[in-house]
Computed example of a mutant assay.
Amino acid sequence: MSTEIVVDAPGVHRLVPHVPREPGPGEALVRVHAVGICGSDREVYRGNRPEGYVRYPLTPGHEWSGTVQRTGAGVAASLAGRKVVGEGFRNCQVCDRCHAGETTLCTAGYAETGFTEPGAMAPTLTLPARLLHPLPDDADPTAAALLEPAACVAAAALKADARPGERVAVVGTGTLGMLAVQFLRAASPAELLVVGTDTGREALARGFGATGYHTAGRELPGGFDVVVEAAGSADAARTGAALLRRGGRLVLTGIPAPGADGLGPTGLVVRQLEVRTVFGAPPAAWAHAVRVFAAGLLDPLPLVTHELPLDAFPRAMELVGSGDPGVGKVLLRPEPGQLGPEMG
């Protein structure tokens, strides 16, 4: 029997029978191949996601890949059988921000797959077909499950606007940081520095294109044109600013804890730093991520360290929150028989 995960309340989940929802007009039903787990999924499970950004009971899962099984009225039948990934934000399409392509700023309010709408920790997912991004027929669907965080990083890369020959740095060595290295490498920087808390991911970062690696506690270099912060802490934001030359560009992708000290306005003004922020990914960033992935310039697969069946959800939550440097991206595979023993 096919099952799905339902989180009824913080810390309370069930494995329940799954009944696919037939696609209505404008919708598609997707067979889920794999679903990734990130810190925000753990927030949902622990109950510390900000108010208004989760709705219980809930089937989580916003990072996923799959194959279209059926389409509803008004959707091209040719979409059936295609490998796809999908945007999470359920934007209204009619407000001024949506018309400007800034769908993550939709004024109709927040709604997102896996947080306020049913997510992909289930064998199938039914959603508006307009949110889907088809992949090449030969795309690796396991690697593609990381295209949601990649789209967020693509949004940061577009805002960073790194140009060939510039000095570029990434602060953070998690999934977002390693994806950022790959996107920024494609811009042909003169230097691409990665800053981490330890040396555990130095080899991986250099394999993705980093030309240098710096660990916390050492004196920071300076003079960088662009810095992408991908660690989600006030310390990382301050480190990013310290790396920049005057007039440099800082892109923040993480969300520090409420009340954390950030960047002082005096320093920003005196040094004339440009600070840009990312929360989610608009369609242009998704298109960029899929294009870079399809071109072979983005390889998320080495970041996957664990693949587990859906009923190992508690184990997956433990792994994501363990702090173990050997744990990278954790994937759940909804259908039994899709994988062998636990990786990692």
Rank of each mutant, 00 (worst) to 15 (best):
A77P: 12
I37E: 01
D161R: 14
V304H: 01
Q93M: 08
L273W: 13
E102Y: 08
V330P: 00
G209T: 06
Y110M: 12
A203M: 07
P10V: 12
Q69C: 14
G262I: 09
D311W: 13
E148N: 11
V195D: 07
L131Y: 00
T104W: 02
A122K: 05
D261E: 15
A216K: 06
V290E: 03
L308I: 08
A80C: 13
L339S: 08
A236D: 11
P23Q: 04
P128H: 10
L268H: 06
A294G: 15
L179E: 07
V168A: 02
A160R: 00
L135M: 09
V7Y: 09
R31S: 12
G119C: 10
A144H: 02
E102M: 13
A231M: 05
V44H: 03
H62Q: 11
G81Y: 02
G337E: 06
E22V: 10
G259C: 03
A234E: 07
L79R: 03
G223Q: 11
A180H: 10
L339I: 08
T124C: 11
Q338D: 14
V85S: 11
D41H: 13
E307H: 02
L15N: 05
H62K: 12
E87P: 03
L268C: 06
P300D: 11
H33M: 05
P20M: 07
P149S: 14
V54H: 02
S2C: 06
T266E: 13
L127E: 08
R206P: 02
A285F: 02
S2G: 04
V226M: 11
V226I: 15
A242S: 12
G177R: 04
G326R: 08
N91S: 14
T126C: 03
L332I: 01
A230H: 05
T215I: 11
V275L: 15
L319E: 00
P258A: 06
L105Y: 07
P300A: 12
D161L: 07
D96W: 12
T126S: 01
R218M: 04
E4T: 11
F115W: 02
G61F: 05
L29N: 00
E27R: 09
A162Q: 08
V330K: 00
E202Q: 14
L220G: 04
Q182I: 03
P25M: 03
A236F: 09
D261F: 03
D140F: 03
C92T: 09
